[in-house]
Write a protein that binds this DNA or RNA. Structure first.
Lengths: 338, 338
DNA sequence: AGGTCTTCTGTGAACGTTCCCAGAGTAAGG
DNA sequence: CCTTACTCTGGGAACGTTCACAGAAGACCT
């Protein structure tokens, strides 16, 4: 009986009020730690709360306050990246750090199907979150539209083409790719290929563009292989293909560290020495880079900072402050692989 | 003016009703796709919705329906694991698949500080979710308490000690560890060590226990090194320590694949051949296993299934069905590393 | 014509809070 | 003793839905 009752109906603020012999208003003031409540009343309410087992219903609270205190983080990635790409974890934790400090709850929503996409859009529009950080959206997303139409405060990590007006925080992929390719060329290589990935996204396109720019006259379209995702597996495959096309290759730019790790495995299995025979560089400076032997020369991108700044952009919008797009600095980390 | 108004006040169901010249109730029926609404009314409402730009307020809806249609997934892991452990991604996607099919929204909440812990507990108790899947909770968590006290439908992935009464889905870590250690011994090794991790958790404890059981008389406490987390870095470090203690070691059981990968790096850097000089086995059968050279012999644990079943347990509780704890099967994947 | 069933519509009553205002009581200041 | 100010409390109104019920209108049968 007792347990059925508790399971069936939770104690409300009114139950507390009558248990304490006080009014709803006073209980609310105690629960929210407001001023203008006597010591006696406070004690009585606290005792009553314990007695009836009250816990505040946030749904009702959110309804009347017209806000939820939550920020959504939308992850729209294919399966494999959720495992392989350490950047996502860093972005998540970066955003969480900022939001947690501002006493917002970060709720992550992952999109893994068309159905998810619609449901998440509903979630965003329904008032369940006060804003959203969007990681790697596609331009075609219903998410981006939903955000735009309803004016939900939002910020993108990365800069999806075709979605203006929404603040974003990104890095200059092209410039960074150009810089590290130039550095690789500086070691005296002349036959340099690239394993390009995710060309459906700005990051993929820009890294390829930067590579081309750095190569200049040395650029050979036949030495670029293209794959859909930044994964270890495609790195392995891509390197094998490059070696088939050009066995005397002496340098490779892999579009990410995971890709580079796969490529290094392929190089080593083919009997080549790194960096003596072939120099290789990556992109991200994720945990992969230090795990490679030799350690990987790569572009350091501040993934956690991307998450932090994006969260800050969302908070700024909520507070009515300006939220300008931002491009973060990258740097080349030169290690043993080239 | 226009934009200020839309930003300031969203259209409500009443706005739609008066725009369509119909009542609140009829609009609600249209929005929810219920029967008993004439074709004319339906058209008028749909037109009005478009005209005023109405989108349903889920907060109000959830309040009156006394449910949210959302399930929380609570991740309580130290930083590094969020990046290194592919199991978490698999669990997440497994749970999402089940919940998405049942039209529930999965919301992931990560706990990264004491403050997060309290906030997440509030989130769970406040009626914002209808249930929760809890990944790797500690017994001391306020989360577990919150779940127990309020009777929020919940299921654990893994089986934290000291929390009875809440359904869980787990694997038999001890039996699996014993099996793979026995298999390793079957290759004729006699000086076998273990890199044990996460002994504050049942998985860590049980894997160590299974190792001891399989070793029997061969067990040497001096050949077990202990580390707090299942990471590549600790695998590297642990292997170096083991080699220092016992240079003629001929076998290692690493508590996870990531740990094994680190250990393999250490072994290879010390000039040892795998599996000729030293045989090594891991645990998880994550993407790490296939990346190692030689590929890693390991215990396959169905991480996505853990997520799926846990989600199903939560749904069962919501529906008032029985939700018995479950132990999933593991199997030994024998590859080239031993 | 009267009855019953079905379809359709409108409206009051929740859901559980917070916010705001009014009023009572007390203290301080002239 | 009258203001004025401050502290404390209670309760009405609102937040935006869904739900249950009542009643109207039409179809169909006897």
């Amino acid at each position: 009986m007792e347990s059925t009752r508790t399971r069936t109906r939770r104690a409300t603020i009114n139950d507390v009020a009558s248990a304490a012999g006080l009014s709803r208003g006073t209980v609310s003031r105690v629960v929210n730690g407001e001023r203008y409540v006597s010591e006696d009343a406070k004690l009585a309410v606290e005792e009553a709360i314990l007695r009836v087992g009250y816990v505040r219903n946030s749904v009702a609270r959110n309804l009347v306050r017209q806000k939820s205190g939550a920020i959504g983080l939308i992850i729209h990635e294919p399966h494999s990246l959720l495992f392989e790409d350490p950047n996502i974890g860093s972005i998540l934790l970066g955003a969480n750090a900022v939001l947690s400090a501002a006493d917002y709850q970060l709720v992550s929503l992952i999109i893994d199907s068309e159905r998810d996409s619609r449901r998440v859009a509903d979630y965003l529009q329904g008032g369940l979150v006060d804003g959203a950080v969007i990681v790697s959206a596609r331009a075609s997303d219903p998410i981006a539209l939903a955000v735009k139409n309803l004016g939900v405060p939002a910020a993108f990590v990365g800069h999806p083409p075709g979605i203006p007006d929404i603040p974003y925080v990104a890095i200059d992929n092209a410039a960074a790719a150009e810089a590290i390719t130039a550095r690789l060329l500086g070691t005296g290589r002349t036959r340099v290929g690239m394993i390009a990935c995710a060309l459906d996204r700005d990051s993929g396109q820009d890294r390829l563009a930067g590579f081309k720019a750095a190569m200049g006259d040395l650029f050979d379209p036949g030495l670029v292989v293209e794959y859909p995702l930044y994964t270890y597996g495609f790195g392995l495959e891509g390197m094998q293909e490059l070696l088939r096309r050009r066995p005397d290759l002496d340098g490779v730019f892999a579009a990410s560290d995971a890709v580079a790790a796969g490529a290094m495995t392929a190089l080593q299995e083919s009997g080549r020495q790194i960096p003596a025979d072939v120099g290789i560089v990556g992109f991200d400076d994720s945990s992969w880079a230090l795990r490679c032997r030799p350690q990987l020369s790569t572009v350091r991108q501040p993934a956690d900072l991307l998450g932090k700044r994006a969260a800050e952009l969302v908070l700024a919008q909520i507070r009515g402050l300006p939220s300008p797009a931002e491009v973060l600095e990258t740097s080349v980390m030169w290690r043993g692989s080239a």
